[in-house]
């Protein structure tokens, strides 16, 4: 069953087109990875889908409901979409646990005890329980990203958006985060992930979307897209990305 569908999605910044008519479907329980050269519009696509950047034209359906028409409850929509940022965006003045409970208390209006119990449970799931009282500045990059993932997951979103979750991590920490995301993949969490990281793409995706110049060039399972795609542009791209690993 489709969770998110977008039809002919266009986004322009000051008249400059970044997305030129994207058609995509994300089904429940599915994990889609979006790849493509820098500046191809990957991150903009994610931000359009949860209306952080409102699209210029086109339709986005969330559970069949058009969320681009006026009068949509943007906040309710965003509560169903967990968002993980490249640079973690953890609240630096709060501990790991408080980072998780703030949304539960202020957005989901949970009591502080219930929020705490929920946070502890989620933190255990990704092995961050022992770090719950640390502040972001006291964590390694991998721990920060795990904390950010927990913060998003604790809100019980229908889908998790990941924007370059491993790009600002060194290889070792990156593996640590990939294994957490892989676990979510195996748990059937619906995910939309933008990345440069072929390793991540391979281990967590049902299919990979290749985006170039603001348009979808190809969509296929990772293996086929990476190793023997007829389009030379795509072969060229993945040759570079995979060789670098």
């Amino acid at each position: 069953m489709p969770l998110i569908e977008c039809e002919n999605l266009v986004k322009q910044f000051d008249g400059k087109p970044v997305l030129r008519g994207i058609d995509l479907v994300l089904n429940e329980g599915q994990v889609k990875v979006i790849m493509g050269p820098s500046g191809c519009g990957k991150s903009t696509l994610l931000r359009c889908l949860n209306l952080l950047d409102p699209p210029t034209s086109g339709r986005i359906l969330f559970r069949g409901e058009d969320i681009t028409r006026p009068g949509v409850d943007v906040r309710r929509l965003r509560q169903s979409i967990g968002f993980v940022f490249q640079h973690f965006a953890l609240y630096r003045h709060l501990t790991v646990q408080e980072n998780v409970t703030l949304g539960l208390r202020k957005i989901r209006k949970m009591g502080s005890r219930m929020a705490r119990e929920k946070a502890v449970c989620e933190l255990e799931r990704v092995g961050m329980y022992e770090h719950r009282d640390k502040y972001p500045a006291q964590l390694s990059g991998g721990q920060k990203q795990r904390a950010a993932i927990v913060r998003a997951l604790a809100m019980d979103p229908a889908v998790l958006f990941l924007d370059e979750p491993t790009s600002s991590l060194d290889p070792e920490m990156s593996r640590e985060v990939v294994s957490v995301i892989n676990k979510l993949f195996l748990d059937n969490v619906t995910m939309f992930c933008v990345t440069h990281d072929a390793f991540l793409a391979k281990y967590i995706s049902d299919s990979v979307v290749f985006l170039d110049g603001g348009a979808v060039l190809a969509e296929d399972v990772a293996e086929r897209l990476f190793y023997d795609h007829p389009d030379p542009r795509i072969r060229q791209f993945f040759l570079g990305v995979i060789d670098m690993r």
Binding site: Q79, H87, A89, L90, Y91, R92, M155
Partner: peptide, 13 residues
């Protein structure tokens, strides 16, 4: 950091 405020809004604040 602006992104932290953005993250709060992305979560539905």
């Amino acid at each position: 950091n602006r992104e932290e405020v953005l993250a709060a809004e992305a979560a539905g604040m």
